[in-house]
Nucleic acid binder design. Structure first.
Lengths: 126, 126
DNA sequence: GTAACCGGTTACCAAAATGAAAGTAAAAGG
DNA sequence: CCTTTTACTTTCATTTTGGTAACCGGTTAC
């Protein structure tokens, strides 16, 4: 009688959240989703604070989950690139929505740990 | 010269992702977003595997970030409830998109660690 | 007198995640 | 022969995180 239509303990959100949220994971997905295929080194360049070990771990997990596709050219030195799979691209809209929120909050002066300043728009104080 | 319009090292995604993704955080936000205000005990009930300590931690962080609002009635025993702030509600669309992905992947047989079965639609094998 | 209620807090400890650095492969260029 | 390149892998030490369990306050029910 309280069901509003969406939330539930056993709804399939949990496993998906485990797969796509978490340290670095969403950042990687956002980069791949907005930039297209990227080589390992390019991803490292976009995320200067990640270590090769962790990036490798996350990419492997995303690949196991069928969200990211790894393509290796058998050249020397090797050229490996990563991109969203067809399934992975389902996340495009969610990632774009998150990005929009990020832009909005940034414009409103939001800061991690401090939240928002009193008023989003200093001009035209009501 | 390669800018396509969205991704960038210093774009405001990183701090927002730190605030809204992470273990349990997104689940809490999804519950509050889809169910409306919830008491501490109700949140515990919706997430049977979380501990009180971790739930408290996450709620405090979300409150510090201006995403969640904590309301305490000075009754005995106390009644505390949590809800999305006005700013926090900016996440509604992103959370709904994520939920849609979760429903779709679930319908396609996606499993964490195993990805998708060969074909989303067993019928009409090509 | 004392246990229960709710929404926590605190201390302690084990487990997991992370970071830095070095190593690996195999060929091409000096 | 030695270095450079890319994309890792491995090792080790450190940091972070999580779980458990006990405790808290103030009032009511037993």
């Amino acid at each position: 009688m309280k069901v509003k239509g969406a939330s539930c303990i056993s709804c399939p959100m949990d496993p998906v959240l485990k797969a796509v949220t978490g340290r670095w994971t969403t950042t990687i997905l956002w980069n791949l989703s907005s930039e297209g295929p990227l080589r390992f080194g390019a991803l490292m360049g976009l995320m200067p604070e990640i270590s090769a070990k962790v990036l490798t771990d996350r990419l492997k997990m995303l690949e196991r989950n069928g969200i990211v596709l790894r393509t290796q050219k058998p050249t020397i030195p090797p050229e490996v690139s990563y991109e969203m799979t067809e399934h992975g691209r389902d996340l495009h809209q969610a990632l774009r929505s998150l990005h929009e929120v990020a832009l909005k909050w940034d414009a409103e002066g939001w800061k991690p740990g401090e939240g928002f300043p009193e008023d989003p728009l200093p001009r035209a104080a009501e």
